[in-house]
Design a protein around this nucleic acid. Structure first.
Lengths: 215, 215
DNA sequence: TTTTATCAATCAATCGTTTGATTAGTTTTG
DNA sequence: CAAAACTAATCAAACGATTGATTGATAAAA
């Protein structure tokens, strides 16, 4: 059955995604993955050709859904620049934190630019969101919503960097926050809204608040 | 010769640090490291006991210099809370960006879920700086320098997260910034002061600037 | 002589991958 | 319809290669 086959492939990809994100590409063995997925080892090669093929398949599966994450928010003319940015942050936090271990995968892969073509693909994929936010910031400066002398590029680094820091270093951020951030209930009910509130206030203070001593 | 032995060990550690940071712990083989270091493979086990011992030795070597990085800034009673925080940022940016590949090592290792003892050691090491900043923020709230309702823990995430984002994802941040951030001259003369200025203004706006619409 | 450092050769273990056999499901054929 | 032929999925076993580690010999130093 074609349907069952896709389900099984999808199940293998789910498991592989988690195992790769926990152990890294080289640290995760094909025996480990097939064992946890409950399938014969040979199935990995049967379906995906090779270990690297399996790894790449994980990315292929997600790329399309990622591209549309923040897109087209900037084109809504009924919103102020600030509202657009705030909406971006809400959407981004909502979406990205559930894809927790895929984010770790992306991050590890993009820091280690072995497999250059994949790095390029990931970069391209992440840049879609970057460009969307940059567009909003640019526009906000032009229409006077935001200060003229803000550092757009570093603001972007702060937005994505803050999120990355929290979810990519769970050991550390759990210690800092005093809670295990892998506790889904805590993450969903407390941390997510808290991050949204914080990020918006942080950015608003930097971008919009009158500040007589800007130096 | 004790001196030569230390030099050779240090040279091996230098090479291993770079190779590990490029390929990860599992991706880097002992033959790779010994080959690039120009020493016999058995020397790694002779000096460091095992591959993991070598890996740990890389961290041991850096820990002491890390621990004193931000420490004792908070104890200087002649500075305001804000000046302390600003000094922390300056020192941190100055110091951390040169240790580029060691930072990548730390980041990759702390992202992994398994390999518990090392993760704990790294976490402990990074927490020293976290605690120092937290102390300054706590104090600043108490003495009225900073707003009472700031989110200390997420501020910390922004400080370290922004930095990590820039230097750990060079492909992406180079694209965002429009310069190759691995260009040392650009990094030293332009990006470093720019990051310092930006971080200070961002934090000041959030922590101290009067803001009538804090929600 | 005793200790330390270095080396090529080798170890068992594990790696990703392949194989050939077997099963189950579908299509074709008589 | 039923037997045969074909296809896809699954498996245990084994493959050669590479891994981290160890050995015993040799050289250098103390």
């Amino acid at each position: 059955m074609e349907k069952e086959k896709i389900d099984k492939k999808d199940h293998i990809l789910d498991v592989a995604e988690r195992v790769f994100s926990d152990f890294g590409f080289d640290g995760a063995s094909t025996r480990m993955i097939s064992g946890e997925a409950g399938v014969n080892m040979a199935m990995l090669n049967y379906y995906f050709g090779s270990k690297e093929g399996l790894f790449l398949a994980i990315f292929e599966r997600k790329i399309s859904s990622f591209q549309t994450l923040l897109q087209n928010i900037g084109n809504d003319d009924s919103m102020t620049s600030w509202d657009k940015l705030a909406k971006c942050i809400d959407k981004y936090v909502d979406r990205i934190i559930v894809n927790n271990c895929f984010q770790k995968l992306i991050n590890r892969e993009i820091t280690m630019n072995k497999r250059g073509d994949l790095t390029d693909k990931i970069t391209e994929m992440l840049m879609v969101n970057v460009i969307e936010i940059r567009k909003i910031l640019d526009e906000g400066i032009k229409n006077g919503s935001f200060f003229k002398d803000i550092d757009i590029q570093l603001v972007i680094a702060s937005i994505f960097g803050t999120k990355n820091y929290i979810i990519n270093t769970p050991h550390l951020s759990s210690l800092i926050l005093g809670h295990d951030i892998r506790d889904e209930k805590f993450m969903e009910e407390q941390l997510k809204p808290r991050i949204k509130t914080y990020m918006k206030r942080l950015l608003k203070a930097y971008l919009m608040t009158d500040n007589d001593n800007t130096k």
